[in-house]
Design a protein around this nucleic acid. Sequence first.
DNA 1: TATTAGCACTCGGGATGAATGAGTGCTAAT
DNA 2: ATTAGCACTCATTCATCCCGAGTGCTAATA
Lengths: 342, 342
Amino acid sequence: MAMDDRKQRIMMAIVSLYSAEGEPVGSNLLCQHFDMAVSSATLRNEMAALTRLGLLEQPHTSAGRVPTAKGYRYYVDTLLQNPFTLPQRDKDALDATFRTLDYDPEKMAQGAAKALSDLLGYAVIATTPQADDMSIAHFEVLQVGRYTAAVLAVTAAGGVRTRVAKVDFELAEGDAGAIARVLNGHLRFVAEADVDSALIRRMVDSLGANGPRSWPLLSAALTLLGEVGRPNIYFEGQKHLLQWPELENSLRPLIETLDDTARMEKLLRPRSGHTTVLFGDEFPEAPAPGMCLVSRQYLAGGGLSGVIAVAGPARMPYREVIPRLEYFSELLGQGMSGMAAH
Amino acid sequence: MAMDDRKQRIMMAIVSLYSAEGEPVGSNLLCQHFDMAVSSATLRNEMAALTRLGLLEQPHTSAGRVPTAKGYRYYVDTLLQNPFTLPQRDKDALDATFRTLDYDPEKMAQGAAKALSDLLGYAVIATTPQADDMSIAHFEVLQVGRYTAAVLAVTAAGGVRTRVAKVDFELAEGDAGAIARVLNGHLRFVAEADVDSALIRRMVDSLGANGPRSWPLLSAALTLLGEVGRPNIYFEGQKHLLQWPELENSLRPLIETLDDTARMEKLLRPRSGHTTVLFGDEFPEAPAPGMCLVSRQYLAGGGLSGVIAVAGPARMPYREVIPRLEYFSELLGQGMSGMAAH
DNA sequence: TATTAGCACTCGGGATGAATGAGTGCTAAT
DNA sequence: ATTAGCACTCATTCATCCCGAGTGCTAATA
């Protein structure tokens, strides 16, 4: 029993009907919105077959059918075959939104998540761009205030990550340079795991009298060392998740999961050039039935890449969401390219 | 009928019982947890009196009593009279949390909100520090990449706000300086309302050939001009609002309100040196029954001040929350002081 | 005069059960 | 291969009833 053409069309119709209404689709309703000259009885037979194939399921005996995760997977994969073309006016709208963002990697990632979430009406998760090679090629220290200095870490791939720290003595002319020399002397191409207290002691010692007092700056450098392999993750538009009745029950664990940086990083890690659709039932550890995460990698140049993902109910209008996500991720990639230059 | 000593003690007992249990407090329950040798009948009389005074109310006839907004106000105001002293170990914990934050005003405000929200288990809203005098004393432009430059706006009070923008031509040596000169020539001490297209045209013209191409930088400066009077507002720990049954029904409008930057700015504007407790029922426009916003100003030096606020159910353990909020706002103020130096 | 025991009363919430109706699978006719 | 017809299932809705927590009031008490 294969997927003949009619079954495919029925599947499509059920998915889009369920997307629109949010309620199980029965044979009668389907019959009305299905312009093939065929009766509801025939549809019932076909639907029974699709159920046996695992693409549909019934919430209870006397209810209509709802697509299963497998059903959605089939729908999405089939749908993704015909390439979308986003109308120019939609692109223009996204361009305009994008142009309001700040050109700082972190602010841009967060701003993009917020903007896209308001635009689409779903929650959006975005990461800062991250290098494949996560070791730090060199550090720079820049005095930005009388007591504050920015520590910049430049990754092997050319990415930059900064962190500002404050010391409790007035920084003199050469202090920033001295600290930068120490950082570069001890921490270049060092993995986070290789940092031990002996190394730290050596660094403090080589700073002489300023050593202990400069600790906040060293600490910032060490934090960067740890962070550079881990992207920042921004989760925006949580409020949009409140409006979907089918998520209502699992809302707390769901938001908890999406808000858990470590878990989301793992979840978003497997990157490819394609748009990935992951259904909540397929989440490892904490399955979140009814929900769905559409994620897309963006390339920020110089080996840097990040992810931007839309989180919402499984019954999302993918034809709307996916092309917009893809176009936006393209903008994001372009926008961030060249930022690393310094 | 005044608030004699016993009425006060009953009021206290009801508030703390209701805080702990989350359910209306009846005369019997109260009698058990009230170590005064007095019967439930007497308590009923007293509770009826407190109800007449408007400090208590009944959700329905056969239910116990719940404090009204007025009742909470009385409780809080009475409670706030005896100064809290936070144990040293709690201060240490807050110190440690605070030390993990970045020394950038925006990141620090957001990080503080996130950290405090996890620490307390309520949502937290924090603003970046804002100057009373919101005009811009001067601009600086700093090239940070081959195509990108940071525009810095220094307010009359010494605060700094930056925004990075990208142009589509390679910046040459003197470009940043030239743009800074134009910005300072036309936008110093100018109010947002006074910016019109004629002024913008003059600015573009005075940049000569680079004028139109430099638009992103001018735009960033104009954005700063608008922003400098408006603080950034970060709303973190929304997930903690999900766990309170009494907020469940009003959750959507509630989060919508707290997430609405413009409205929150207005709500947090009236600042004083005191901790302010505002109950949801007292919100203008969109009352949010059952909830409560405890806000506290922090002083970042140089006339800059921001607000950090805890949002949660009205039945919050104020004796826990308030001293921690106050101590944290003190840290925040200290942390941000001197950042403006440049 | 303040307190308390006792009692009638109120009313939300949970349990029960019948009616409703949407939707199904199956069978027999086309 | 399709379809009309029909018996069957089961979530949902609504009305009803009952229980019990909690009240206010009255009359007795210290």
